[in-house]
């Protein structure tokens, strides 16, 4: 692809802290290379803001290679921007043209309150994981990984579900702010493997209960989450969770 430079107008959500009302600010950036990532463009802008003695724009990021799930910008109406199966940090400026105006917002959901500018508090996901997104094992020698036979198809499905990086884009895209793609991915990933099998029923009941407590909405199977997920997590994981939940609530001792 041909390399080019561009001048852009950015409308960015600025909010001092959780109690501030917040508003959009407009910025101009010039000479942005089409080879830059979206976050590098923000780095350039922030350098300029610092030089002018202004407060730089706060945004989350860590690995910048699409694997950690920290970056979280809602760009022109799409979480992680216009490309599919892609994270904000891996969105390149060649997705835009010279003269474009880009609107950047934080994830919007009551369960993900804005801390500052584009940074949201996503610890609700951590608490959902703590409620059941694990397997309990005794300490001691690590067991030989190949000792347990696992059906290939199941291993593949579990692996595909395990690709979730916990970014929260599914919540951001969903009209109901539902976290069920994330929770479904975890429940399917662990439930499909023999190591996760023993705690299967408690897991789904506890994780769903925690999810509701955190204030996420209910899934209505619209499909927006699947289309937005940077890791292509399939909505069939949600259906699988529904089944697990139905079975667990029918046979639970409580």
């Amino acid at each position: 692809m041909e390399h080019y430079n561009m001048n852009l107008t950015l409308k960015v959500w600025r909010q001092k802290n959780q109690s501030d009302r917040g508003q959009f600010e407009t910025y101009k950036v010039s000479n942005i290379s089409s080879e830059m990532s979206f976050l590098e463009m923000f780095d350039v802008l922030n350098e300029e803001l610092i030089q002018e003695g202004k407060d730089p724009i706060a945004f989350d990021h860590d690995c910048r290679e699409g694997i950690c799930g920290m970056c979280s910008m809602y760009i022109d109406g799409k979480p992680h921007g216009p490309w599919q199966e892609n994270t904000t940090c891996q969105l390149h400026m060649r997705a835009f043209k010279d003269g474009d105006t880009i609107t950047v917002e934080p994830w919007r959901a009551n369960a993900f309150p804005v801390l500052k500018d584009l940074v949201t508090d996503r610890t609700a996901f951590d608490r959902i994981i703590q409620a059941g997104g694990f397997i309990s094992v005794n300490t001691g020698n690590a067991v030989d990984a190949n000792a347990l036979p696992i059906e290939k198809a199941k291993a593949d499905d579990a692996f595909a579900a395990a690709a979730c990086i916990g970014c929260g884009a599914c919540v951001a895209a969903c009209k109901n702010s539902s976290a069920l793609l994330f929770v479904g991915a975890k429940v399917a990933h662990l439930g499909l493997l023999p190591q996760g099998e023993p705690e299967r029923k408690e897991r789904v009941l506890n994780m769903v209960a925690q999810m509701d407590k955190e204030g996420f909405g209910a899934c209505t199977s619209t499909g927006a989450c699947e289309a937005t997920c940077p890791k292509g997590i399939s909505i069939s994981n949600i259906n699988r969770l529904n089944k697990e939940y139905l079975v667990a609530s029918l046979v639970s001792e409580k």
Partner: peptide
């Protein structure tokens, strides 16, 4: 209940992608 879960709405609508 689903409508109450996003206090601040988005300025740009998500649109039809996937749904």
């Amino acid at each position: 209940s689903n409508r109450s879960k996003r206090g601040t709405p988005y300025a740009v609508n998500y649109g039809n992608r996937g749904s």
